[in-house]
Design a binder for these strands. Structure first.
Length: 160
DNA sequence: GCCAACGTTGGC
DNA sequence: GCCAACGTTGGC
C-alpha cells in the first residue's frame, strides 16, 4: 500500500475579505495575493493535491479556525502579479521567472463551531502549534498531524 | 487605533 | 553584508 504522504496546513484569511462562507459558496478559489517568501515556498515546494487545510480567520472577532479545505491544484504562477491594476502587482516579476506562486483551495466543511485562538492557546496539547506562538504572522504554515486531529476534536468535527 | 513582531528595502 | 528606516500583520 502506498504510504500516506498527505500534509496538513493552516492558511489565514481575513473574513472581511474572504471567509469560510465565501469558500463554501464558491467551492474553490485561487489562493492569490501571498507575498511572503516563506509562505510561497510552502505552497511551491511542499503542498500536494488533497493535503488538508485548516482555514483560519485572522483579524476577526474572535480570530480562530473556521473550516476545512483541501489543496486542489498543483502550484502555479499567481496571475495577479502580472496585472498592473491589481493590488498584488509585482513589476519585478516576469512570466519567464514568476516570483509568486499559488495553489487552488477547495471547500471541505465549515466546522460545527469556530475554534477561537484563545482556546488554541489555552490547550497544552497545542503549545507547540505555530499559530499559537507569539508574533506568528506566517499566513501559510505547516500543521503537525497530531495538532490537526486535536483541533478537529475541539471543534466537534468528524476525524479525517 | 495601538503597537509588538517581523519582513523588506536601500544606503553605505 | 550590515543595519536603520519603513511597511505590514494581526492580536488586542
Amino acid at each position: 500500500m502506498a504510504k500516506n504522504t498527505r500534509k496538513y496546513w493552516l492558511m489565514k484569511s481575513e473574513p472581511d475579505v474572504y471567509s469560510i462562507d465565501d469558500l463554501a459558496r464558491e467551492g474553490r478559489v485561487h489562493w492569490d495575493g501571498v507575498r511572503n517568501y516563506q509562505a510561497r515556498n510552502f505552497m511551491r515546494d511542499q503542498m500536494k493535491i488533497d493535503d488538508l487545510v485548516l482555514f483560519y480567520h485572522s483579524n476577526a472577532k474572535p480570530p480562530g479556525i473556521a473550516g476545512l479545505a483541501t489543496v486542489a491544484s498543483e502550484p502555479y504562477a499567481d496571475p495577479t502579479q502580472f496585472d498592473p491594476k491589481s493590488d498584488y502587482h509585482d513589476p519585478k516579476s516576469t512570466k519567464d521567472n514568476p516570483r509568486w506562486i499559488l495553489v487552488d483551495i477547495a471547500f471541505v466543511e465549515k466546522l460545527p463551531a469556530l475554534v477561537p485562538l484563545d482556546a488554541l492557546k489555552a490547550d497544552p496539547a497545542l503549545e507547540e502549534m505555530l499559530v499559537t506562538q507569539r508574533g506568528s504572522r506566517l499566513s501559510v504554515q505547516p500543521v503537525e498531524h497530531k495538532h490537526f486531529t486535536h483541533v478537529l476534536k475541539m471543534a466537534g468535527a468528524a476525524p479525517r
